[in-house]
């Protein structure tokens, strides 16, 4: 990854110097270790702020909308698929963005690493597949593969699907026998057990809407939870309202979700909200053979009618 950030900085400074783009959207170090935050770079002098490592779990496709002038954006595999979704949904034009593709070997699960240490982590570095994590009392060397996020272990599209520049060599894609083991596990339960599972899943939700805000798909000017005339969802902590929010948020992502994991990354209560969207991903794959954001010329399945659409549910 170290060579990759040099390449990113090189491309970014070249683009800014030539005036090809006005801004570069990338990641910068946060105020604590293992935290990176999105950053917008306007001038060549600031290019050194850019970083890229295994903690860049957020999705930068979220920031390419409503930009004036041309912007460059650093895109992992999932980010690039979300950019494709944006182009298909007319949120941004292809010639408005310059995509700096970064082949990705997965992002780490910060919560899992934090759980290893009793105290705060003061230093985090990585070299290839090894992570060096230091807390105030001890130091550990970890294998990155064992600490990947759940969605990254099941990722089938690590390389960007569309890019203008590439900041590293393409990586080998994973081949998975079953890409949806987590969905299968829930599907095997009976109705009451499923209900119980989701009740427990959402019971800690504080309705902060971080999952919605982190999601590149959620760009409605007024979200359904903020609507007040008519008000579809209560705004309190009522369990039914919380469930309605999670259900509808997920359903709005049907056939569009790229499983980038930004929602889980953003959740302060460690709720695996992917349990909802994963089912929709599996369904759209099985019913329509569709994975979101792979092709810039194709309309999403819920957008178009085709005579071959499954209709077993209609009497």
């Amino acid at each position: 990854m170290n060579t990759c950030i040099n390449k990113i900085r090189e491309i970014a400074s070249k683009l800014l110097e030539n005036g090809e783009v006005e801004k570069v959207i990338g990641f910068a170090n946060g105020t604590i270790p293992m935290a990176t935050s999105p950053v917008v770079i306007n001038s060549k002098q600031d290019v050194d702020k850019l970083v890229f490592n295994s903690t860049c779990g957020l999705n930068l496709a979220n920031y390419v909308r409503n930009q004036k002038g041309k912007v460059a954006v650093i895109a992992k595999g999932c980010d690039s698929r979300n950019i494709v979704t944006h182009i298909v949904e007319n949120q941004v034009k292809r010639d408005q963005i310059h995509i700096i593709g970064v082949p990705c070997t997965g992002m780490i699960n910060k919560k899992k690493i934090e759980a290893l240490f009793g105290d705060d982590i003061i230093e985090f570095t990585e070299d290839g597949d090894t992570l060096n994590v230091k807390s105030s009392t001890r130091e550990e060397t970890l294998n990155k593969k064992e600490y990947l996020r759940d969605n990254c272990t099941l990722c089938m599209h690590r390389n960007p699907v569309v890019y203008d520049d590439l900041a590293g060599d393409l990586v080998q894609e994973q081949t998975l026998e079953n890409p949806y083991p987590d969905v299968d596990r829930i599907e095997a339960m009976d109705a009451d057990a499923k209900w119980q599972h989701f009740q427990e899943l959402t019971q800690n939700c504080i309705r902060c809407y971080a999952c919605r805000n982190a999601c590149p798909l959620c760009y409605c000017p007024t979200c359904f939870v903020d609507e007040s005339g008519p008000q579809w969802v209560g705004k309190g902590q009522n369990k039914t309202d919380v469930d309605t929010f999670h259900f509808l948020r997920a359903f709005h992502c049907a056939g569009r979700c790229t499983d980038c994991g930004a929602c889980v990354e953003a959740c302060p209560m460690d709720i695996n909200v992917r349990d909802f969207t994963r089912k929709l991903n599996k369904d759209s794959f099985e019913m329509f053979g569709w994975e979101a954001g792979l092709d810039i010329t194709k309309r999403p399945p819920l957008d178009v009618y085709s005579p071959g659409d499954p209709n077993a549910f209609i009497k």
């Binding site: 109705a191 009451d192 499923k194 359903f251 049907a254 089912k279 209609i314 009497k315």
Partner: peptide
């Protein structure tokens, strides 16, 4: 798909019906 997700969440399948008449 909506019916499927409701079922996935544990709502009985027969609670939501669709038909074309």
């Amino acid at each position: 798909m909506m019916g499927n997700l409701l079922e996935h969440m544990g709502i009985e399948k027969d609670r939501v019906h669709f038909s074309w008449i």
